[in-house]
Design a binder for these strands. Structure first.
Lengths: 307, 307
DNA sequence: GTCGTATCGGTCAACGTTTACCGTTGATTC
DNA sequence: GAATCAACGGTAAACGTTGACCGATACGAC
């Protein structure tokens, strides 16, 4: 009987009306993903991770990029609430906006936060220990013998930037090396600004022998700046990035970087959001999960000159 | 009165139920975007272009990446039809699958095709003349004096690959240069395969003095292969890419490439789809629009050695 | 033959809007 | 003062599905 109905449905190629289903089920089967002007590779990893989990589910993914959340969190909140979503995945820096979290909690919109850095007890959290990751890469540079080390920070509104810097500081203090604040420049995760900052660092009379960039795009920019100044990498200058994005492999020399399991974290965030939405949340799915970083030593770092 | 109602609604923070609106309006206000395992920068440009048009509209964007359309077009068709969309944007190579077009036409799902290469009279078409673009970049290389020219093709299932090659052929024949088929290798638009193909080309006894790669990722791979073989770019080898993706600017030397207005084309496709959906289609919006490419001569191409 | 059980067809309310309709009221016009 | 019109409150149908319910039928166990 069941079979006959299915066959007849197929014959008429009948598809149930999703709007009517949504109306009765009181949900839209839409999951939102919001992020901010980040590098293309990061965005695509994020999307693919979430989509990987959504495959073979009824849920569909709506992309909602939004720039400058920090200055107008309530606008993003309205956008998310108007979008008719069942749940939303919040990537940095939106996941660290308390006002935004307040808004969506008030409207009872379930959400999962990907690598948040503040209020770690709010909502579903998929975390990576940025401090530890920053520590690892800084320790690598220090162990090679570098002592005069430049830093290119990311966008200050991203809490990741602060976390990674904190990790650098820990590694420096453990190695008994004082951080030279005049060698710490602030970028915004883009190649162009990274280039400018790298130029200022390399133009200083006492040039650093290594640069820690907080993402790969800025690390590649630092290599470009070095090349334009006739400084060879890694012989005269070591450069380390962050993210293990595609550009870190296609750059020359290939970048020493830290792999962030962005795809896995996005998958995980979607997994836990679905668990909450469907009420199938096992204890395992609901508890906080930490993802681990991985240092990838490639060709852009070496011992400092004269060592 | 109207004002009072609005105020009361705001006070109760009442939001109309989208599912009920969809049910009565007989549309979901969802627009799909489907594409296939392409470079991150291309995907993001595509999405941002479409999102740019959708901003301040009621429509939301659902992303539906799908790999290997060529071998299973009807599966993608089912996916699209089940997604409850009002319309769909088809990027290559899905836009060139006649079976897929048949399916979605049968179900009366409006669609817009971004840079299709076959059946140009079906559906809404936003086109770029790939043949002309291929012609332009090949003519540039020929005008520099190159005669022994290697080619790295993209994925054969992308019609763009054939179109660009056709443009190369025209330029060669106009210049009276015979194409050396043994110097034509087939890649798949990825860096890794591009590297392999470049290595084979550069290992030939009579090394080409220039390489035409069908996208930037493969062009960057060709530069990496040359570097690994001790061949300097552009002194001993010129390399030209395609797409003007971000990597073409961050690479060293910066790539000579062809700018494809991907973002503008995606905007345009969304614009025309919305015009059809809302029935506000002016004659201007409904007629076919051609976008023009632009040759960007940068540092990776020069005259061949000894000229 | 009786009882319990499973399966079937059919009816109906409900989900939250929108649109149309009707009747009433108050203001405007000649 | 009568006629015209806009604004308003209220009622009801419709969108396409789901889930509950009822009654009828068929099946096996006792």
């Amino acid at each position: 009987m069941r079979r006959k109905v299915k066959e007849a449905a197929a014959a008429l190629d009948y598809h149930p009306n999703l709007a009517a289903q949504s109306l009765i089920a009181r949900r839209s089967f839409l999951i939102g993903l919001t992020y901010e002007r980040p590098s293309p590779s990061y965005v695509v990893e994020l999307q693919n991770g979430a989509l990987g989990r959504l495959e073979n589910e009824r849920y569909r993914l709506v992309v909602l990029p939004f720039n400058h959340v920090a200055s107008r969190p309530e606008e993003l909140g309205k956008l998310l609430l108007r979008a008719g979503l069942d749940g939303v995945l919040l990537a940095p820096p939106a996941c660290d906006q308390p006002l935004l979290l307040d808004m969506i909690e008030r409207q009872k919109l379930p959400y999962a936060r990907i690598t948040p850095h503040s209020d770690l007890d709010r909502g579903l959290v998929v975390a990576m220990d940025e401090v530890a990751a920053g520590h690892t890469v800084a320790a690598h540079i220090l162990s090679l013998g570098h002592r005069r080390i430049g830093v290119i920070l990311g966008d200050p509104s991203h809490a990741a930037s602060r976390g990674r810097m904190e990790g650098y500081r820990q590694a420096f203090s453990e190695a008994g090396v004082r951080i030279d604040e005049s060698l710490v420049g602030t970028g915004d995760f883009t190649h162009d600004v990274g280039y400018q900052v790298a130029r200022t660092l390399l133009d200083r009379p006492l040039r650093p022998t290594a640069i820690l960039a907080q993402n790969d795009d800025m690390a590649v920019a630092a290599i470009a700046a070095a090349r334009d100044l006739g400084v060879s990498v890694p012989d005269q200058l070591s450069v380390a990035g962050f993210d293990n994005s595609e550009v870190s492999r296609t750059a020359w020399p290939q970048l020493t970087t830290v792999h962030q399991p962005v795809r896995e974290m996005a998958w995980d965030a979607a997994d836990r959001l679905i668990a909450e939405l469907d009420g199938t949340g096992s204890a395992a799915a609901l508890q906080r999960r930490d993802h681990v970083h991985e240092l990838l030593v490639r060709a852009s770092t070496a011992a400092p000159p004269g060592l």
